Amino acid sequence: MTALSDLKRKLRPGQVYRRADLARWSKSVDRHLRQLVEEGRLVKVSAGLYRTPRKTRFGDAPAAPDKLVERFLKDDRFLMVSPNAYNGLGVGATQLYNETIVYNAKRHGRHELDGRKYDFRQKPWFPTRVTPEFLLVDLVDNLGRLAEDQDALASRAKERARQMDRQALKKAVRDYGGQRAKRLLGPVLADDAHAVA
């Protein structure tokens, strides 16, 4: 058995690998990577990042976004938020975006991975899952980046805040909100303003 065929046996469909992962199994990793990409056994998704194709009846399936981001960051602590989710808050947001925000503790900047766009934002604190309260705080903090009427969205965000779980919203503003969220949503929570100051 050759070193290349031994490496092929270790690859699993739909998985994402860093070059360093494959270097553990190959003494000629760069040559083997070139061969595996040429053969279609690996697909390069970014510098130093590869995925094994997973065939479906519709063709080659892309890597699962969470696996892709985890291998890219070399960390499983991150939160992916699609700005499209703002549309479900009932604040009048209707635009569709083709970029996913990834809150994490390691990387900052925009990257394309496996044909999809990600905006990595380094933050010390973010929740483990998206809640409506966090999503509203996130929308307010990102108003300047949205292709919508910012004043109208801000006004409706304040109205929506009044309908939300007060304690959960206070916690989201306090723990994850930037200055804009604290300034805009603070008056809505004014009866206990010190909780979001």
Rank of each mutant, 00 (worst) to 15 (best):
Pro83Arg: 13
Glu159Asp: 11
Gly177Ala: 05
Arg183Trp: 12
Ala152Asp: 04
Leu42Met: 07
Thr131Gln: 05
Leu11Asn: 04
His108Leu: 07
Pro65Trp: 05
Asn98Met: 08
Tyr97Ile: 06
Arg129Asp: 09
Val45Tyr: 08
His194Ala: 13
Leu189Trp: 02
Lys8Ile: 04
Leu89Met: 06
Ala147Trp: 02
Asn104Asp: 10
Pro124Glu: 10
Pro65Asp: 13
Gln150Trp: 12
Leu11Asp: 11
Phe58Gly: 12
Gln179Ala: 15
Lys10Gly: 09
Asp119Gln: 08
Tyr176Ser: 06
Gly88Thr: 12
Pro62Gln: 12
Lys117Ser: 14
Ala193Glu: 07
Gly92Ser: 12
Val196Thr: 01
Gln167Cys: 05
Thr128Lys: 11
His108Gln: 15
Ser82Trp: 02
Ala168Cys: 04
Gly88Asp: 12
Glu159Tyr: 08
Glu99Tyr: 00
Leu22Val: 03
Val45Ser: 09
Ala85Leu: 13
Val196Ile: 10
Asn87Cys: 15
Gly178Arg: 08
Gly109Tyr: 00
Asn98Lys: 10
Pro83His: 14
Thr131Met: 09
Tyr50Arg: 09
Leu68Cys: 06
Thr100Tyr: 03
Leu143Gln: 05
Gly144Ser: 07
Glu70Gly: 07
Leu146Lys: 11
Ala147Phe: 02
Arg160Val: 04
Ala63Gly: 08
Val137Ser: 01
Leu153Tyr: 00
Trp125Asn: 10
Leu184Gly: 11
Asp30Pro: 00
Pro132Met: 03
Thr100Ile: 12
Asp76Gln: 08
Phe72Leu: 07
Gly90Arg: 05
Gln35Leu: 15
Lys27Trp: 00
Ala63Val: 01
Lys117Trp: 14
Lys117Asn: 14
Lys55Glu: 14
Gln35Asp: 11
Arg77Phe: 10
Arg116Cys: 07
Arg24Lys: 10
Lys74Asn: 15
Gln122Arg: 14
Glu38Trp: 09
Glu70Gln: 15
Gln122Glu: 13
Tyr176Glu: 07
Leu184Ser: 09
Gln95Met: 09
Glu99Leu: 00
Gly178Met: 09
Val81Lys: 04
His32Leu: 02
